[in-house]
Simulated assay, not measured.
Amino acid sequence: MARSSRRHNHVPLTPQGADLPVGPVDIASGTVELEVDRDDPRAVTVHVNGVPSSYVHLDDPTVLAFEYMQQMACLIDALPAGPLSVVHVGAAGCSLARYVASARPGSRQLALDPDPTLLELVRGWFGLPRAPELRLRAQDGREGLAGLRDSSVDVVIRDAFAPDTTPTHLTTQQFLAEVARVVRPGGIYLANIADRAPLALTRAEVATALAAREVSPESDGVRSPWRDVALVAEPAVLKGRRYGNLVLVAARAGADGAQRRSWLSDVDRPLRVLPVPATRLGRDELATMSAGAAPLVDPPDPAAA
Rank of each mutant, 00 (worst) to 15 (best):
T208W: 02
L199Y: 08
D195S: 04
Y189L: 15
V183A: 12
V215D: 14
R241M: 12
A207K: 02
V222W: 01
V215T: 15
R227G: 09
P225C: 00
E218G: 00
R184E: 13
L238C: 00
V179M: 13
A191Y: 08
R227C: 05
V215R: 09
A209G: 00
D228M: 08
P225R: 04
G240K: 04
A209S: 09
L201K: 05
I193V: 15
A212E: 13
T208V: 01
A209Y: 07
A191I: 02
R181G: 04
E214A: 04
W226T: 13
E178L: 11
E234D: 03
V215A: 15
W226E: 09
V222Q: 03
L190E: 10
W226V: 09
I193A: 13
E205V: 02
G240L: 02
E214H: 06
R203Y: 05
T208Y: 00
S216A: 02
T202G: 10
N192G: 03
W226P: 01
P225T: 06
R196E: 13
A211G: 02
A200N: 12
A191M: 06
P217C: 06
R213S: 02
E234C: 06
V206S: 07
S219Y: 09
D195M: 08
L199P: 15
D228T: 08
P198S: 10
L210D: 07
W226M: 06
S224P: 06
R196F: 10
V229Q: 07
P217I: 14
A204Q: 08
K239L: 12
E234R: 09
A191H: 03
R196M: 15
P225H: 06
N192Y: 11
S224W: 08
L231N: 11
V222I: 00
E234G: 04
R181Q: 13
A233Y: 01
R181A: 07
R181N: 11
V237C: 03
G221W: 09
